[in-house]
Amino acid sequence: MLGLPAEFTPDFLARLEQLRIKTRREYVGMGKGAHLSPKRGSSLEFSDFRHYSMGDDFRYIDWGLYGRTDKLYIKLFQEEEDLLTYIFLDASASMAYPVGDRKFESAVAIALALAYVSLASGDRVMIRVLAGEGDRVATSLVYGRYRIVELARRLVAVKPGGQLDLVPALARELVSIKRAGKVFIISDYLMMLNSVTTGLGLFGAAAMDVTAVQVLGGRELSGQGIEGNVELVDAESGERVRVAMGSRSRQQYHETLMRLSREIRSFCFKRGLHYTLYTTDRGFHDFFLRAAAELGLVH
């Protein structure tokens, strides 16, 4: 439908529209919106008092306080602005394997769903693709839910490929971001743990509200299909490892992957980041709506 992935049924879109992104901080937006801004403004949310100055709108004078103190005070209110949402999508070669698991397609669907939630809430979205082949998607901040079609068209055209060094790649992106906001980083995170923590830590240090979405294949997680003497080739680095896979080895492999995932989750928890794991053998709709809180979404 409109070039969107098959997961985007009308019913699913309707349910996405009921969600909105919740941040743990207040960020300055680029226009009026539904998120509280650190700026003083005209919302109903009381912020502070200050002494009355000439020219102030006397509608905001707190007359009760004048009666008690015999001094004029002006009530200050918080501003409500839109939220700037940054979605970083890992399109490195590792996202293409195992082929049957459709990891990258699932990651694209998650990115588009998050983008739609943001756009439907009146926020602004920027999607950046890390690595990948074909046209590099480097959108500026877009506004309006209709822009989801354009985003979808451009993301679907991306083919996973190349090698991703997460820390430099995120550092480059961080430099280009002028205003802080909500950050989603969607990847399989199959890399050294310190790369993951450093990369995620960059955005944390920049006062961004980060959500790490890890996408793993169902068969990838179980090691299914790798049997006997095999020479494994790393999709990104080309590194080769020979192993003899049996049931015990497969179990050890699975435990190693799960340990890596737990360590990323633990890091995010300590740093106040959101984390969620999606395995492609789960139903997409079910995952997205159930994991809304972990993704940093609210109804």
Partner: peptide
Amino acid sequence: PLRVTVSSVLAFRALRGLKGERPWGLP
């Protein structure tokens, strides 16, 4: 051995240390 491309050999490295590789690279 059958050559298989995987997303990452990260989790397989531990297996190699355990039992996968044989001397002289023999399967």
